[in-house]
């Protein structure tokens, strides 16, 4: 994924980086992504997963996407199961430790229907950071000696010219598109994030296109009152989509915790027959509902309220 620096710069130069209204629908945002693009997902495991955009990509019938994420949960299963992606670069891939090893991930990888390219968590972070910094690689002191490093041919070892220490060089990762979900954002793409930021700031800086989904759109005046809270600047953002509960059934810090009944249901559905299970889930929850609100209705008011009460409780003393 390391691009020539000149290409990276000219791609950025060609983007309209003016302060302009970028609000659009999920479907319009999905149309900005091409088959075979490298798409980086923000958040981590069950947190601030850009689920609504993943959902929109699957509905739009995208193919052969290369996906990267720090840690991958059920959204990875859905991307494999729908055929939207057959290649996920990540450090850990399963629904979550309490549900055991993902049967869908196992089926697709063990039968060589899809690739799970494994890097260490920090190496992925520093690949995005190198991409964000506009340098071609980052030296790290991790992964050496391991088979995780051994299976990857994109790294190099070097002896440091200053100290002589052995270092591993990991290449910059500049995704074609980054999908990021935040609590608040204005129409121009100035984004505020509450709670754990994960790798989202580096991903946004590294990517050649950023699609920002947000729990709510706030005014630019509101952003300008507290500019220290803006974590991702509008100049990196190409689309803004307002999607309440846009991470469901995953969580969004301070707004809702995971929708546990749906996650339990999914784990049960895919346990005995991963292929039929994931297909049934996709039919029912991704292709079935006519829009995102209909999807939330399907999750059920009681579950929405339960997840919300738990989510907001982070602000309780």
């Amino acid at each position: 994924m390391t691009k020539s620096y000149i290409d990276l710069r000219s791609a950025t130069e060609m983007r309209d980086r003016s302060l302009r209204d970028k609000v659009m629908s999920l479907g319009e945002a999905a149309a900005l992504i091409a088959d075979r693009d490298h798409v980086a997902l923000g958040g981590c495991t069950l947190s601030r997963t850009p689920m609504a955009m993943v959902w929109a990509l699957i509905r739009a019938g995208k193919k052969e996407l290369s996906i990267s994420r720090s840690i991958t949960s059920t959204e990875g299963d859905l991307l494999y199961g729908s055929g939207a992606s057959r290649h996920i670069l990540t450090s850990w891939f399963s629904q979550g430790i309490v549900w055991g090893v993902s049967k869908v991930m196992r089926h697709y990888t063990e039968n060589k229907l899809a690739r799970f390219e494994e890097w260490s968590h920090m190496a992925i972070g520093l690949r995005y950071r190198a991409g964000a910094m506009g340098v071609p690689f980052m030296p790290v002191r991790t992964m050496m000696g391991s088979d995780v490093g051994g299976r990857i041919d994109e790294t190099h070892e070097m002896d440091c010219p200053f100290t002589g220490d052995r270092l591993l060089l990991v290449p910059a990762l500049n995704p074609d598109v980054a999908l990021i979900h935040v609590q608040r954002c204005d129409a121009y793409g100035n984004a505020q994030m509450d709670g754990l930021p994960f790798m989202d700031i580096d991903i946004a800086m590294a990517a050649n296109k950023v699609i920002m989904t947000t729990e709510r759109i706030v005014s630019n005046d509101q952003i300008r009152r507290e500019p220290d809270r803006t974590k991702i600047p509008f100049i990196t953002v190409d689309a803004v989509v307002e999607v309440p509960y846009g991470c469901a059934p995953h969580e969004c810090y301070g707004v809702y915790e995971p929708f546990l009944p749906n996650l339990d249901y999914y784990a049960e559905l895919t346990r005995s027959d991963p292929v039929a299970g994931v297909k049934e889930y996709l039919e029912r929850f991704v292709h079935g509902p006519k829009n995102w609100n209909a999807y939330l209705t399907l999750l059920g008011m009681e579950n929405v309220i339960d997840a919300t009460v738990r989510g907001r409780s982070v602000y309780n003393d």
């Binding site: 450090s91 063990e110 799970f116 968590h121 920090m122 190496a123 992964m143």
Partner: peptide, 11 residues
Amino acid sequence: IRLPGTGGGND
């Protein structure tokens, strides 16, 4: 068996 992988374990 394909297990979930390193996460931060390797680091």
